[in-house]
């Protein structure tokens, strides 16, 4: 679903991502772990097509992102770590906007909005301007918007920050649902317990370089993911 080949991105003198290669198969929830400034957000932004890599190639469902960005963007959804949304729209206007751009018919849009807004307890807030939303509500709205066009690949940067426990649980279920339907999830997190329980595969990145990746068992063996992560951080 997502192939990253020798991705490199440099900011001035600093290599934010250095020759990174990853492959995320359909049906997989893939966790991306690393300390602050390790290059997670840069990688996710490059996969979302909003950051131009210096070298390497990214393919979404077999399509090279650089060659056909629009075809790739139709298949993906991206949620940044701090989703700033249009404060001048109401929640429902925002969802309608996203649906219109992705060409989602009104009936399907309304059906999906109702399906996801109710469990997130957002139904009564959709008529309010987004400028009045809390961080968690914006995060929930960003999740609903991301699911609205039924993407094949969802890229998320720290998706659980700001969500209440109920919403976080719901999001995990939604992630699994997408993967069961043949989609894939690639997300970054600092919450190692979540990664350990939720991810099929995981990659650990440090100073832009991949230091370990594989299935959860391959990466952590009998130890906890936290122990492995701390050990690798100390080693590298």
């Amino acid at each position: 679903m997502l192939t990253i080949d020798h991705l490199t991105k440099t900011y001035g003198e600093k290599k934010a991502v250095d020759d990174l290669s990853l492959h995320i198969a359909p049906g997989e929830i893939y966790g991306f772990i690393g300390h602050n400034g390790a290059g997670k957000t840069t990688t996710l932004k490059a996969c979302a097509g909003i950051l131009l890599p210096d070298a390497g190639e990214i393919r979404i469902d077999g399509t090279p992102l650089a060659a056909d960005p629009l075809a790739c963007k139709r298949k993906i959804a991206y949620i940044p770590d701090n989703p700033d949304l249009y404060g001048f729209m109401t929640g429902s206007q925002f969802l309608a906007f996203v649906a219109d751009v992705f060409g989602v018919p009104a009936a399907r849009r309304d059906e999906l909005t109702a399906r996801y807004a109710a469990p997130f307890e957002m139904t009564n807030d959709l008529g309010r301007p987004i400028s009045g939303y809390s961080h968690g509500m914006k995060q929930k709205l960003a999740v609903i918007a991301a699911w609205l066009h039924e993407p094949k690949l969802i890229l998320m940067d720290e998706p659980f920050v700001g969500l209440d426990p109920t919403a976080a649980h719901l999001l995990k279920e939604m992630m699994r649902e997408i993967c069961n339907a043949g989609g894939a999830i690639f997300f970054s997190t600092h919450v190692l317990e979540v990664a350990e329980k939720l991810c099929d595969r995981v990659a650990i990145i440090k100073q832009g370089r991949l230091i370990r990746s594989g299935t959860m068992e391959e990466v952590k063996g009998d130890a906890s993911l936290e122990d492995v992560f701390l050990e690798l951080e100390a080693e590298a």
């Binding site: 404060g87 001048f88 429902s92 206007q93 906007f97 219109d100 849009r109 309010r128 301007p129």
Partner: peptide, 29 residues
């Protein structure tokens, strides 16, 4: 945005093409 929560009605939104949606976004901005 720190005002008291008010009850709001969610209006049915019209469907537009991508260009129409982008224009609507600019108008609302």
């Amino acid at each position: 945005g720190g005002e008291a929560k008010r009850k709001t009605k969610t209006k049915a939104e019209k469907t537009r093409g991508a260009d129409g949606a982008l224009l609507m976004k600019e108008r609302k901005r």
